[in-house]
Design a protein around this nucleic acid. Structure first.
Length: 886
RNA sequence: GGACGCAUAGCUCAGUUGGUUAGAGCGUUCGGUUCACAUCCGAAAGGUCCCAGGUUCGAAUCCUGGUGCGUCCACCA
């Protein structure tokens, strides 16, 4: 074996990462079917599968994606090392409207006025496809830069042929089951992009509006209030609360007022939805332009009159003279003017209002009645197969019930758990899902019409059939992602991958719970009768150091690639995983990344030191832990076992941050600061050092794959770390060893403090006396080295004239060559004694309390007793010392 | 309007079923040319665990109420 164990002084991530990644990829470690060729233990291994939440092909990856990749890669690497056959499915999302809008805006910036009209459907789509392709290339290279160990040879795309087959099949099935229907209903309409939007694609923007209270005409008895006077041409009723005494007499009556030159037919209806406290307690009902009004209209069988068209203009035929063709805003002003002139306005006030805004383009969304395709979430249907262990084939259920049950039954576990509630709330309030879009980029609605749309087909279209021009909501295809990527509906292909579904975990940002997670549950429970994943892990959003969302307009965006170049991928990954909590938004600063760059370098130097100790020939490479010789050996091996067991448990429980922090504290605080320092004194530790290094590199690998793999190779360890075995968690209950070592630490730290307090030059060697830690008698050599002492004596008392400090249960002293300030020394010791006595007293009180000793667990009482005797020993030592000084 | 989250050292955050004297990183101060590392080493200072009650032998932790900040959902015309 040729090794090059002379590492440079500092780790240089940029110079090695690309090669390391290349090595992994070509080795086949990312491909579940090639793992067995790398290590036999994968041959009949349990499957572990994550589907990558496919990034949108709208540009480049941001820190949110980086978090996702860091966490998923961590989980994949952990499970791969643990011996699972890991399959991380990569892919991208066409993101229909987002991508189309983006390209449209780019073309407009390049000088086109109306790109869609100018280019036509095919030429425009070609532009979109070109953009999507280049975006995809960028995304793939960014994923690789993050070290993501997914198999790009199996890449999927939400808009490729196989996924289209899945989309068409699910559509066909749902249509057959009556779950997808075409209907004339009020939908969200974006008048700028000229497409419908789902409820989830509409945001509410806080503004103020003029609330006008008026009557339709002089004779109409009930005043109503509105912020949208222009829609009032479409009013077909006035609704009041059933218990409202003011209006009871009018309920059931129909009036025919003339509103701004147009004759209306207004029926007064009683409906629970009306709040009698608000405004006049009466609502003008406009079924065509409000979903809530549409609901009221349905309950009372009221007609619908549309007054606004798809350009957000008034419809000529439906409105009063002079209004046809005006925009809604123009019409609004004109109506208020006319009402006012006619003396019909009771009051006008500014009120806060939430305006519906299209999530992508920012246009004010109109609610219009249109003929569209809907997924019926509340409609009972006969399930196609045994479902979720609860419904037998043929049983009746609704999609909403399936969605609810998947999580309520704990078939899916959500981390953090509290998002259950959010999910249930969303599911319970879900309305039918409008899935047809009037944009061009996306899956075509798989429906063909003949004649005057009288004949409809969802399968093979013949001659004379025309396909629906609309496309599907992008979430329809992403909802199928967990199984469409595994080959469904192709039976042969899906059979090959069957063991991977349900996938192991779905990891994504909590902001996407409704859009995506819920829809995957819907699709999977419907089409397969099973959940799409067993666990859901939701990470928080990445904000800037002030807690603000990163955005281009604020100029606070941190580009992951910049950070990777500057600090290395491992540092970026650590900064995104450690110091975070699932579901909790995190603040990220460049300083944080820098701190973790320092840690990667620390690990590098720990390795460098160990490799120098081992030398080119030395060091056992056997996996069985070597025999410890000294206290420090026993301690480090015990701690290593403890830490391995603990972080294994934590990672399995998704406590990724905590596990990483524990490992960091061990690596830096135990291994580097103590064990390696002692190794400089106690020679001949090649075997243990090698074992510890191998174990630590393996434990760190899921978190920081590059530096660990680099060291592994340079150390000449066998094979590739990516497929090395996860360290065994052999239980090592060596509590007493750990305890004794803690005493050593305490003594050394106290002696160092004593040095610092007395301003003893660092190079100067001291004489050290230790009182009350006789178990350390065989550690004199280590203590001497760690404290820079020329002599170490274990004494019953600290000699007079020496400086001293108390330890946990005794004292240490150093020879100050009679340069001691007795008064100062006394003051210091008295203070220490006071504190120690107070502590003893408080413990005495507690231990003297019969209620405490009888009710508290034995363990707690025992620890307290130990503490008390230690503190008492300390007090005794202090007392003696003070006595001497006096 | 509803739901959820957060509030602990100057800053960012841990604190896992309630249990010793509440921790870490960064920052600060002091000291360092110790042959792995100054991207480092040693030491120190720094806390009314948001407030008020309650439960308990015992509360940062559980309960009630309040305050401040944030997120999501709904939305009153």
């Amino acid at each position: 074996m040729t090794t090059n164990r002379d590492l440079p002084k500092a780790y240089d991530a940029a110079s090695v990462e690309a090669d390391i990644f290349q090595g992994w990829e070509s080795s086949g470690a990312f491909d579940p079917d090639r793992l067995a060729a790398l290590d036999a233990r994968f041959a009949d291994a349990e499957p572990y599968c994550i589907v990558l939440p496919p990034p949108n092909r709208t540009g480049t990856l941001h820190l949110g994606h980086a978090v996702m990749l860091a966490i998923e890669d961590l989980l994949i690497r952990f499970h791969r090392m643990s011996g699972k056959k890991t399959y991380w499915v990569p892919g991208t999302d066409h993101a229909a409207i987002s991508t189309q809008v983006k390209v449209e805006q780019m073309l407009i910036e390049q000088g086109m006025k109306d790109p869609r009209r100018e280019l036509g459907r095919e030429a425009f789509l070609e532009k979109v496809r070109t953009f999507a392709q280049s975006s995809r290339d960028t995304i793939v290279s960014q994923c690789k830069a993050m070290g993501a160990s997914m198999d790009w040879s199996r890449e999927k795309y939400t808009l490729d042929e196989e996924r289209n087959a899945a989309v068409n099949e699910v559509f066909r099935m749902m249509h057959e089951d009556g779950l997808i229907e075409r209907g004339f209903r009020v939908v969200n309409w974006d008048p700028v992009f000229k497409t419908t939007l789902s409820d989830d694609e509409v945001d509410m923007k806080e503004t103020t509006a003029r609330l006008v209270t008026f009557t339709y005409d002089k004779e109409f008895p009930i005043p109503v209030a509105t912020t949208r006077p222009e829609t009032k041409f479409g009013d077909t009723a006035v609704a009041v609360h059933p218990d409202d005494e003011r209006y009871k007499a009018f309920v059931g009556m129909t009036f025919t007022p003339t509103f701004c030159g147009k004759k209306l037919s207004i029926t007064v209806v009683a409906d629970e939805a009306v709040d009698p406290e608000f405004g006049t307690g009466a609502v003008g009902v406009t079924p065509a332009h409000s979903m809530t009004d549409a609901d009221i209209a349905e309950r009372h069988g009221l007609p619908t009159v549309q007054v606004i068209d798809q350009d957000a203009c008034m419809i000529v035929d439906a409105v009063g003279e002079g209004f046809g063709g005006l925009t809604t805003v123009e019409a609004r002003a004109k109506i208020e003017e006319m009402l006012s002139a006619a003396g019909l306005v009771r009051s006008v006030e500014e009120v806060p209002q939430s305006l519906p805004i299209g999530q992508r383009g920012g246009a004010v969304v109109e609610q219009l009645p249109m003929k569209q395709w809907f997924v019926r979430v509340n409609k009972p249907f006969a399930v196609r197969q045994d479902t979720l262990g609860t419904w037998k084939k043929g049983d009746t259920a609704t999609l909403k019930e399936l969605m609810r049950h998947a999580v309520a039954s704990k078939l899916i576990t959500v981390v953090p758990e509290r998002f259950d509630k959010t999910y249930f709330h969303w599911v319970d309030n879900l309305r039918d899902w409008c899935i047809s879009r009037q944009i061009w980029f996306g899956h075509r609605i798989p429906v063909w019409y003949k004649g005057d749309e009288t004949a409809v087909s969802t399968t093979s279209p013949g001659k004379g059939w025309e396909q629906d021009l609309d496309t599907l909501d992008t979430w329809f295809s992403s909802g199928l992602w967990t199984f469409s990527t595994l080959g469904w509906p192709d039976e042969k292909e899906f059979a090959k991958n069957r063991a991977y579904h349900p996938t192991s975990v779905l990891e994504t940002g909590h902001d996407i719970l409704f859009f995506w997670i819920a829809r995957m549950v819907l699709m999977s429970t419907y089409a397969l009768g099973e959940v799409p994943f067993k666990d859901v892990y939701l990470h928080g959003l990445v904000c800037d150091e002030k807690g603000r969302k990163m955005s281009k307009s604020l100029g606070n965006v941190i580009d992951p690639l910049d950070m990777i170049k500057k600090y290395g991928t491992d540092a970026v990954r650590l900064s995104l995983v450690l110091g975070t909590t699932p579901g909790q938004d995190q603040k990220l600063s460049e300083e944080k990344i820098e701190g973790f760059r320092n840690f990667t370098n620390k690990l590098w130097n720990i390795s460098r030191f160990i490799l120098m100790q081992i030398g080119d020939e030395g060091g056992a490479t056997s996996d069985t832990p070597p025999k410890p010789v000294t206290l420090a050996d026993r301690w480090i091996l015990a701690r290593l076992g403890e830490v391995t067991a603990s972080i294994t448990k934590k990672i399995a429980a998704y406590e990724l941050s905590s596990a990483g922090e524990e490992l960091r504290d061990f690596t830096w605080g135990d291994l580097a600061d103590w064990y390696l320092e002692i190794a400089k004194v106690e020679q001949g530790k090649e075997a243990i050092l090698t074992h510890v290094l191998k174990t630590v590199l393996a434990l760190w690998h899921p978190y920081m794959p590059f530096v660990t793999e680099d060291i592994w190779k340079k150390a000449g360890f066998e094979g590739s770390l990516i497929v090395a075995s996860w360290p065994s968690q052999e239980a090592r209950s060596k509590k007493q060893e750990v305890g004794t070592f803690e005493v050593l630490r305490d003594v050394v730290t106290t002696a160092r403090r004593l040095r610092a307090e007395n301003s003893i030059e660092p190079q100067k060697e001291i004489n050290l006396a230790i009182h009350g830690a006789s178990e350390l008698k065989d550690q004199a050599q280590n203590i001497a080295a760690l404290c820079r002492a020329s002599t170490v004596t274990f004494a019953d008392a600290i000699p007079e004239g020496w400086g001293s400090l108390s330890t946990q249960k005794g004292m240490v002293g150093i020879d100050l060559a009679d340069a001691i300030d007795v008064e100062k020394e006394m003051a210091k010791l008295s203070k220490e004694m006071e504190e120690a006595e107070a502590y003893v007293a408080s413990l005495e009180t507690k231990l003297g309390n019969a209620e405490f000793t009888s009710k508290a667990p034995v363990k707690v009482v025992e620890t307290m007793k130990t503490n008390k005797s230690e503190a008492e020993a300390k007090v005794a030592a202090l007392k003696e010392r003070i006595g001497k000084l006096e």
